[in-house]
Amino acid sequence: MKFLTSLFNKQPTAEDVKVLVDNFLKIDKRELYKYQDDIKQLIRTISKVLQTVKKQANGYPNNSINAKVWMDGFGLIENTKSLYEYFRTTAMDSETERFADLWAESTLSVCSHYHHMVGPSMIAAAEMKEKSGDTRTALVYYNAVIKDFQSFTEFNFDEKPPNNDEIAALKSLNIALKNCLKLNNNENLEHLDLLTKTHGILEKFSKANN
């Protein structure tokens, strides 16, 4: 791609990534085999911009963050998610896995305190690791979601029903628990109990809104 070539002699920006992604998403998936080198360069470009965002994020949310840096990070989240969703319907599992990783990493760089955003990206990355046979890393990702999200099962939703963000977090927790138990042959009793609680909350919420 002509625009990709023009990036070789400059430090890419989040704006450059958006242009690249917009162009890639226009490609007929049946023609992707013609763009192998471009896809590799796209991944390198996104990774380079992401590393810059992570360095400039200043330990956010524990510290303040420049608004432009946050916007760049949020743009990377949207773009890497779009690429993951685009590639996941192809036979290019290795590239899909890489975009899932970049989506999760982008999310954690500026939105690590937004569980409803972290959950889906981590689950996507974990499922791609599982699909590729890397169950060890998949379990690390699933367990990270479980550890950070299990407190949602202790909320008093009888007083205040879960909002959409909380439901999204609970759904991610539910998937992480199911997949973790599957990989561990259902031998973790604590996870089984937690899954029962999570499923119960989701079931009750669904019935209340039908």
Score class of each variant (00 low, 15 high):
Y114M: 13
N143Q: 10
P162Y: 06
Y86S: 08
A100M: 01
P162W: 01
N58L: 10
P61W: 02
G75H: 05
T89K: 12
T135M: 09
I27N: 03
S206C: 04
F3D: 13
T198C: 15
L7F: 08
H191L: 01
F24A: 02
D22S: 06
K178Q: 15
A169E: 02
L25Q: 05
D134N: 15
V140N: 04
D28E: 11
A100Y: 03
Q11V: 14
M71F: 02
P61T: 12
A125V: 04
L195S: 10
V53Q: 13
N66V: 12
I167A: 07
F74W: 08
M1V: 10
D93K: 10
I43C: 10
L173C: 10
M128F: 00
K182C: 00
T45K: 03
E97H: 14
T52R: 15
T196F: 03
L139S: 07
D101R: 14
D16V: 03
L192Y: 00
H116D: 07
K129P: 08
L108Q: 07
A57I: 02
K182Y: 08
V53W: 13
K131Y: 00
T153N: 14
S109G: 02
T80H: 05
A100S: 12
A14H: 08
V53D: 11
I46R: 01
L50N: 11
M128C: 08
I65Y: 05
F99E: 06
A57R: 10
N188S: 10
S64Y: 04
I167L: 15
Q11F: 07
Q41K: 14
Y35N: 07
N185K: 09
L50M: 03
N179M: 01
A138H: 03
N179C: 01
T196E: 15
R30F: 11
N164S: 13
Q56R: 15
K18E: 14
N188I: 15
N156A: 08
F8H: 13
K2V: 09
K54W: 05
L170C: 00
K160G: 06
D158S: 12
E15A: 15
A208V: 01
A168M: 12
H116I: 05
S6C: 05
D22K: 06
M1R: 07
T96M: 10
T137K: 14
I167R: 03
D38Y: 06
K197N: 08
M92L: 15
T45D: 04
M128V: 01
D158G: 04
R88K: 15
D37Y: 08
Y35M: 04
N58V: 11
G200Y: 07
I175A: 04
S6A: 03
A144S: 12
E130S: 09
V110D: 00
N23Q: 09
K10G: 01
L170R: 01
N23M: 12
Q51E: 14
V19A: 11
H116P: 02
S82Q: 09
G200M: 10
P61V: 12
E127W: 00
G73Y: 06
C180D: 14
K207R: 13
T137A: 07
D193N: 13
M122A: 08
I39M: 11
M71S: 11
T13A: 06
N9Y: 06
T196A: 15
D72K: 00
F99A: 06
F24S: 06
L20K: 10
A176K: 02
E78N: 05
N210Y: 03
